[in-house]
Structures are given as structure tokens and as C-alpha cells.
Design a protein around this nucleic acid. Structure first.
Length: 874
RNA sequence: GGGUGUUUAGCUCAGUUGGUUUAGAGCGCUACCUUGACAGGGUAGAGGUCAUGGGUUCGAAUCCCUUAACACCCACCA
């Protein structure tokens, strides 16, 4: 066996083995199900650190459930990501010299599918490298036929229930992707801009008023000037009209309390086509709507000679012209928030358009109760409850239409001045004709009269059904899969999609299954670089995920990611974490090499081994209890750290060192057998974190039947804990450590046998067998009082003496003891201060007071022994 | 502008409803050791007035208030 663990060959060998044996596949049976649906990555995405963290956690949970003999089912898949994918396809076509506008819908979709097939498998293959134990036979794509049909079914259902409506509304327009976005897809950024003070002349020639605006290019859409009715500066101007500069259109001066008299000049220009608030005011006062922009954010004919110019190019030119006209009073620097597209980064243009909306007010109610009132769903960490609550309580209607082709086409069919919503053209025709008949019309419609809505649905309008539709629970709500696997168990995802996805899945879950989609939501942190910056392509600070696996091994990378990722806290990723994971893998590898190199012999088991193994069993059980508790709280990294220490410190450093036979000597059969059994239980506990290494060692540890795997081994049960033994072992460990320190300080040879004496004969706390093997001591001698020329070490209140001839440095020893004496005296004083405080003795609980009394007694005893030793040293 | 969270050893973080020694872990650091599992190792050690100021309490890293820095979320101020 090699002296170091070499992951690459082992990883590919076992992953293939697992797939071949179909160990990750799940079928409905009578066991308890444990289900996770993957947050579907973008179909054309590549694995990044966030995915790695996310999916490692899911794999840990699912592998543990599998070991607990649950029916573990992890459903993988990908998302069609309409805007992102369409943007990439458009860009590639452009490279090939093809403009999207020249293609028909069908032709374009053909290109999109080609692209999807080309890149679609990449990220799933990468997840396999990480060791993800998904049921690949269930791989689902949000554009699969049944997924597509589910979305259409839901759209029609919600429409018929009156939750979906079509409305002419101010929406967020992405001029680059030429589509609308939901409010959630708009990211506000602070940008430095200008505040332009523009003069609008009164039409009666009595001078001009000044309006402050950040967007002079929108003056072509101005339909009024609005002031606050309480503003004395303008009280006599109401009812007058002014000229819009450049176009010289006449507009009225109106008043509304919306206007803040303090801001700018107290005059607000009203441009209903280009601003949400202006639209509200326009509606209130029945003002005209003048849209001065084209869909690509260039100015249109309303802007006269600026027609065709981009909005940002036009802005300074308009300012120049105003300057020339003497109408630009001043320009001030102004910091304002600009909405940008999450996908393309383009500055969002508010625009009035016909769009489809989902009414949220009613749908959202059970989703609020589920998390905040009934506790049916728990968020981990729970600090996200507030964020969740705030969003749901202030939710607005969801714009679900997108002006794209890649996605589920909205099943609305227009004819004459109306429309029907239907699954297919045939059904739409039927409906249209039925309706005509109802209205006593003789008109018969044909396919040529109907035109399907060109738009597709928001990507999230398909992924919000994911936990239901992957089990076909929309189209066949009573099929046995959905009834068995749903509600799923845990969801693991990033907090950045809490609203986009998590909240909406909860909403759809209650609407379509009358219950929650998952019981627990584990929100991971964002993966940042060492300097705390978000990992991003543009910064180039994201390590190559697969490169890390190549360098350190998948197990090491998994451990590295988990070691410092408390739920919900961001994690600063550093490659040294992977090194730590790799070192751990190597440590286990070598522990395995050690025990398997032992030759077993039919000899009596040494007492030390018996005690050591009993101690380790107790330690194991105690740690297992702790680990179970950490899992229950979704504290995965703490569970891993406890296991790390159990293996490295307790198993390797203490137990194996204790039972290790002398060089080239055999070990007794019983010890060998027990060491193997313990190793096997540790491997099972470790398997969810390090699947490859544990499989390799588990297979080598014993002759396994054909086709067996640690993946489906049994999770260990906790057993009795011998607490007094743990106490004595700890005491012995402390004494051994103290001796090691002493040897180092006094330059005594590390393995030189020492004699140990102690006065405490009544209850010997030390385990002599362990002490003599690991502390290199002869048997312990009980003495009446310390002799001359001894060194002393103390564990708790017990003093141990080591006779050491005349060579000891008395001064040094005295100094050390004096220091300790001072500390103990100071400590005793603090405790006594409490104990002499009547209010403490009366007020504090009895056990606390008793504990303080014990401290005082212990300290006194220590002081006494130190003083005796000091007096001996003279 | 509103909200939430964070601030504990050089770094990353624990610290569970205030009370087991005048605070813990992992990594890093320092010294020494190391030819019998592992130098990707062993042993030991050093490192913190728990962000600030105040308050409650017999007792505060822990509860309350002030201030500061940082992070995230939400919001239509031209």
C-alpha cells in the first residue's frame, strides 16, 4: 500500500461502481422516504464554488439518510434559464453573423436546443466528479415535455381561478435583452449622475420656472409640471401653462401633495410613460401619455432631431442644446439609484406595456403561516424568518411574461379584440367558437384567425413547481411517486434565491398539494474569496472547481468547503482548507495502513488495550450523540469537526498509540479485531463527508460480498458511555501531557522511564497501564510525603512527584511553583469574594454556590500541596 | 430612507435559555523531536482588557441602551 492516499484513480473507480450497482436509484417502497430536489443549475452553467458547497451539503445529507436505511432520493436536473440562455444563444448567432430578428421562432428554438444539447450535460458531469449521489435516472430539465405541460397546466388553472390577469402596467424593461423583468430581477446600484436644472418658460411670457431632473432626455414625454399645493412659491402659478423646451409643447402646471417642496426646486415634471410615480399622477389627473423611447432605448419621433439616438448619448447633447438656448440654469452632481438588469446589466427603463401578472395577495397567505405561524417549514438559520416575512407581507403582483422565445410560450390566443387561454390551438378554437355561440354570434373561427401570444413565461414560473413537477404531480396529482416523495425533506440553497425560488415553491406547494414542499430549508452562505469579495467571473477570483478536485481530491475539497461553513454565514474560501482536507484523508489512510500491518497472534490481551478500547467506545458514543445533535440542528461543519477530532486525536493519537505493539511484535487477536471494528464504524460515520476514501478503505478492511458498498452500510447506533472511565482517562492524559512538558523543559530523554510517586492512595485517578505505556513510567508508588530532590507535576488537585537525584535546578523549580502559587491564591480570592458576598450566597442557586465552594476547597488544597513542595525545596 | 445581521486569539469561527475553574476549536505561528503508520507527521508552547461607552444583576462575551465599523435585504424621492 502506498504511504499516501492518491485519490484520482480511486475516485473514478468507485463512482463507476456505484452507478453500475444503481446504488443511488430510488424506487417507491415501504421504507421512510428522504427526498431532496436539487436547486437546478442553469443548463449551460459550469460548476463554481457555490455549486460545490451547496451540492456537497446535499450529498452529505442524502448519504447519511441512505446509511440510516431510509429510501434516499436526490433528484437532479437543470433549468432552462430563459433570459441567460437566450442571451448566450443570441450572442453565438451574432458571432456566426446571424441576427435573431432574421430567424423564425422555430428556427431560433432549434438553435437554442442545439446549444442546450451541446452544453447541457457539462454541469451534471461535474457534479459526478464531486461524488454527488443523485438518482441520475431521474434527471429532469425544465423544458422536458411533461415539465413544459405542467407549467401550461398551472398557468391555465391559475387563470381560470382568476389569479392571473393581463394588464397595461409600468414594467421593468431591459433594453438589451428587449424583455420585461420582474421586480426581483432588477438590481439597484448607486451611480453618480447629474441633476439638471431646466427652465420652462410660462406661455404668458411672465418668465420661467425651473425644474430639476436627472433625465433631460425624457422632457419629450412631459405632460405637466407638478408642485406641492402648500408651496407658497407657486401658489399664484397654478393653472398657468409652460412650454416644454426644444419641442415648445404647452403643458399645464398642476399640484399634488406627492411633490416634496424641499427637493430640487419643488417642481416635478410629469412624464407618465417613463416613470412609475408620474404614471400614478398622470392617471389621477387624467393626463396624456407620451412615450418618447423605442424598445431599444433610443429616442423616437417625439424627440424630433434626436430620433434614433441612444438615451445616454442624447442626454449630454440635449443638455448642450438647452445650454445654447439659455434654458439650462445649472448642473449639480447627484447620487442616485439606478435599476439594472440582473442578467444583462443594462439600465432598466420603466415602460408601459401589456403584460401577464400573477396576483399574489391570496396565494401568499398559507406560505406566510407555514414558516412563521405553524412552523411547518423551518429556515436554517432562522434569522432569515424576518427577511422572508417582510418580503411576503409586502409582495406585489408578479410579472410572469417575458419577451423571449426560449421558454414556455404563454397559452393565450388572440382574435378580434379578445383572447382565450387554452392548452392548444385546437382547444383555443373550440373555446372561441363556444364563446361566439354563447353570444349568439354565427361567427366560426379558424386557425388563421387565432394568434398565440408571442411571449414566454418567466423561468421561475417553471422552477416554482420543481418539487411537484419532477414527480409529475401537476399532470397526475395522484400518482404514487408524488404521494410517496412529496413533501420532500430538506432543501439546500443560497439565500440569494430565497424570494425568487424558495418562497414561490412554498406558495405553489400549498396551492397544488395543499401542503409544504419541504420541511427544512438550509440556506448556505455565499462563497467569497480570502479578501471577502464575492466570487465572480469578472474579478477572476473564483478557483477552478474541477482543478481543485484534480489537485486535492474530491473528498479533500468537500472537507475543505465544509470545515468553515456555518449555515447562513458567508464562507471565505481559501485553498489551504483543501490542504487540510487532504491531510486528513492521508491521516486516515495511514491509520488504516498501521492496523492492517499488524500481525494478530493468539496471545492474552494486555490490560492497557482492554481499557483503551473500552474508553474509546465511550468516547465514540459520546461523540456520536454530539454529532447527531449537530445534524439535527443542521450544523454540518460542527458535526464534521467533532468527527475529525474523534478520528485524529482519540483514535489515532491516543488509542492506536496505546494499543500499538512494539516494533515487529504481533498484537493479540482481540485487540486487532476491535481496532478493525472501530475503524469500520468511523468510516461509516465519515462516509457522507468523504465518500471515496471511505469506500476504498471499507472495501479493503474486510472480505466483502460481491456488490456490497459502504453507501448502504448501517449507520452506527450510540451505546453506553462509561463516564467515570472517561474521567480517569482524561486525568491520565493530562498527567502524560504534563510529563511530556516536563521532559521537554528539563531536557529529559523523551522515552526515559520515570518513577512516579503520589500521596493520594485513597482514590487513584490515574490509569497506571495507560500511563506506563504512553508516559514511559514505571508503576506508581504511593508515598506518605514527598522526598527531597523531586520534580512535581500536578493534575487537578493531585500532585505527582518524580524523584530525580540532585540534578534538578532548584531555583527554576521554585520560581515555577511560586508563579503557580500566586495564580492559585488570586483565584481563591476571587472565589472567596463571591462566597463572602451574602447576596451571592442567598441569591444564587444552591448548585452554583456548591460549585463555588468546591472551587474554593480545590484551590485551597492545591495551595497547600504547592506550599509543602516549596518548603521541601527550601 | 427602512430593516436584518455581524464585530471573541495572526486567520476562519464556536460559545446553546446569564453562573464548572480569571473564554474554546481548527488552521497558522514558535521551539523541540522524528530511520518502524503518516514531515501532508509527533510533542509542547505562545497569542484575547470578548468593537465602544453606559446600564440591569450577587454575577455579563451572553440581557437592555448609546456609538462606531462592516455585510446583506427591502424601498418610486424627481
Amino acid at each position: 500500500m502506498e504511504t499516501a492516499y492518491n485519490p484520482s484513480a480511486i475516485e473514478s473507480k468507485w463512482y463507476a461502481y456505484w452507478l453500475e450497482r444503481k446504488l443511488f436509484e430510488s424506487k417507491v417502497d415501504d421504507r421512510e422516504p428522504y427526498t431532496i430536489v436539487i436547486p437546478p443549475p442553469n443548463v449551460t452553467g459550469v460548476l463554481h464554488m457555490g455549486h460545490m458547497l451547496n451540492n456537497t451539503i446535499q450529498d452529505v445529507l442524502i448519504r447519511r439518510a441512505r446509511l440510516q436505511q431510509k429510501n434516499a432520493c436526490w433528484v437532479p436536473g437543470t433549468d432552462h434559464a430563459s433570459i441567460a440562455t437566450e442571451a448566450k444563444v443570441v450572442a453565438r448567432l451574432k458571432q456566426q453573423g446571424i441576427a435573431k430578428e432574421t430567424l423564425s421562432r422555430e428556427e431560433f428554438l432549434k438553435h437554442a436546443w442545439d446549444w442546450t444539447e451541446e452544453y447541457g450535460g457539462v454541469i451534471l458531469a461535474q457534479l459526478k466528479r464531486l461524488g454527488a449521489s443523485c438518482d441520475w435516472s431521474r434527471t429532469t430539465f425544465t423544458m422536458d415535455q411533461h415539465m413544459y405541460d405542467s407549467v401550461i397546466e398551472v398557468f391555465i388553472d391559475l387563470y381560470e381561478k382568476g389569479h392571473i390577469y393581463r394588464g397595461y402596467r409600468m414594467v421593468n424593461w431591459d433594453p438589451e435583452a428587449k424583455t420585461t423583468l420582474s421586480d426581483e430581477e432588477v438590481i439597484y446600484q448607486e451611480r453618480e449622475g447629474n441633476l439638471y436644472y431646466i427652465q420652462y418658460a410660462y406661455t404668458d411670457g411672465s418668465g420661467a420656472l425651473t425644474v430639476a431632473t436627472t433625465r433631460p432626455e425624457t422632457i419629450f414625454g412631459d405632460v405637466a409640471i407638478c408642485v406641492n399645493p402648500e408651496d407658497p412659491r407657486y401658489s399664484d402659478k397654478l393653472g398657468k401653462t409652460v412650454f416644454v423646451p426644444i419641442v415648445n409643447r404647452e403643458i399645464p402646471i398642476i399640484s399634488d401633495t406627492y411633490v416634496d417642496a424641499e427637493f430640487g426646486t419643488g417642481c416635478l415634471k410629469i412624464t407618465p410613460a417613463h416613470d412609475q410615480n408620474d404614471k400614478a399622477i398622470g392617471d389621477k389627473y387624467n393626463l396624456e401619455i407620451i412615450d418618447a423611447l423605442n424598445s431599444d432605448a433610443t429616442l423616437n419621433a417625439h424627440a424630433l432631431h434626436y430620433e434614433g439616438l441612444d438615451r445616454f448619448e442624447a442626454r449630454p447633447k440635449i443638455a448642450e442644446e438647452l445650454q445654447a438656448l439659455g434654458l439650462l440654469l445649472k448642473v449639480e452632481k447627484h447620487l442616485n439609484k439606478v435599476g439594472t438588469s440582473e442578467r444583462t446589466g443594462a439600465v432598466i427603463e420603466p415602460r408601459l406595456l401589456d403584460q401577464w401578472f400573477l396576483k399574489m395577495e391570496e396565494l401568499v397567505k398559507p406560505a406566510i403561516d407555514a414558516v412563521l405561524k405553524n412552523g411547518e417549514i423551518k429556515l436554517h438559520p432562522s434569522k432569515f424568518d424576518n427577511t422572508y416575512k417582510h418580503w411576503l407581507e409586502n409582495i406585489r403582483d408578479w410579472n410572469i411574461s417575458r419577451q423571449l422565445w426560449w421558454g414556455q410560450q404563454i397559452p393565450a390566443f388572440y382574435y378580434d379584440n379578445t383572447f382565450v387561454v387554452a392548452k392548444s390551438l385546437e382547444e383555443a378554437l373550440e373555446k372561441a367558437n363556444e364563446r361566439a355561440a354563447e353570444q349568439q354570434s354565427n361567427k366560426r373561427y379558424t386557425a388563421a384567425d387565432l394568434r398565440q401570444d408571442e411571449d414566454v413565461l418567466d423561468t421561475w414560473f417553471s422552477s416554482w413547481l420543481w418539487p411537484i413537477s419532477v414527480f409529475n404531480g401537476i399532470l397526475e396529482p395522484d400518482n404514487k411517486e408524488i404521494n410517496y416523495y412529496y413533501p420532500t425533506s430538506d432543501l439546500v440553497t443560497g439565500p440569494d434565491i430565497l424570494f425568487f425560488w424558495v418562497a414561490r415553491m412554498i406558495i405553489s406547494g400549498y396551492e397544488y398539494r395543499k401542503t409544504y414542499p419541504f420541511k427544512n430549508v438550509y440556506l448556505t452562505g455565499l462563497v467569497r474569496d480570502k479578501q471577502g469579495r464575492k466570487m465572480s467571473k469578472s474579478l477572476g477570483n473564483s478557483p477552478d472547481a474541477l482543478g481543485l478536485i484534480d489537485t486535492y481530491g474530491a473528498d479533500a475539497v468537500r472537507v475543505g468547503l465544509l470545515l468553515s461553513s456555518a449555515a447562513g454565514n458567508d464562507l471565505l474560501f481559501d485553498e489551504s482548507l483543501c490542504q487540510q482536507g487532504r491531510n486528513f484523508a492521508n491521516k486516515i489512510w495511514n491509520a488504516f495502513r498501521l492496523i492492517t500491518s499488524w500481525e494478530g497472534a493468539p496471545i492474552a490481551q494486555p490490560e492497557a488495550n482492554k481499557i483503551g478500547i473500552e474508553w474509546f467506545n465511550s468516547q465514540f458514543n459520546s461523540t456520536l450523540d454530539f454529532i447527531e445533535d449537530q445534524y439535527a440542528k443542521y450544523r454540518i461543519s460542527d458535526a464534521l469537526m467533532a468527527l475529525y477530532k474523534l478520528i485524529w486525536d482519540d483514535y489515532c493519537s491516543w488509542l492506536l498509540e496505546l494499543i500499538k505493539p512494539a516494533y515487529q511484535q504481533p498484537v493479540d487477536e482481540a485487540t486487532k479485531k476491535e481496532a478493525f471494528e472501530l475503524m469500520e464504524r468511523l468510516l461509516v460515520l465519515l462516509h457522507p463527508f468523504m465518500p471515496f476514501l471511505t469506500e476504498e478503505l471499507w472495501q479493503q478492511l474486510d472480505a466483502r460480498p460481491e456488490g456490497s458498498s459502504i453507501c448502504v452500510a448501517h449507520w452506527p447506533q450510540s451505546g453506553p458511555i462509561n463516564q467515570p472511565l472517561i474521567g480517569r482517562f482524561n486525568h491520565t492524559q493530562s498527567l502524560i501531557s504534563a510529563l511530556r512538558t516536563m521532559r521537554k523543559e528539563k531536557h529529559i530523554k523523551p522515552k526515559e522511564i520515570l518513577e512516579i510517586q503520589t500521596q493520594k492512595s485513597d482514590h487513584l485517578l490515574v490509569i497506571p497501564e495507560v500511563l506506563s505505556k504512553l508516559g514511559f513510567t514505571s508503576s506508581i508508588e504511593i508515598i506518605e510525603s514527598a522526598g527531597d530532590n523531586t520534580l512535581s507535576v500536578r493534575v487537578e488537585t493531585t500532585e505527582y512527584y518524580i524523584p530525580f537525584g540532585t540534578q534538578i535546578n532548584v531555583e527554576e523549580e521554585v520560581e515555577k511553583l511560586q508563579k503557580e502559587l500566586t495564580y492559585q491564591k488570586g483565584f481563591l480570592e476571587i472565589v472567596n469574594r463571591k462566597l463572602t458576598n451574602k447576596r451571592f450566597v442567598d441569591g444564587a442557586p444552591d448548585e452554583v454556590v456548591a460549585a463555588e465552594r468546591k472551587k474554593a476547597a480545590d484551590a485551597q488544597e492545591k495551595i497547600q500541596t504547592i506550599e509543602i513542595t516549596l518548603s521541601k525545596l527550601g
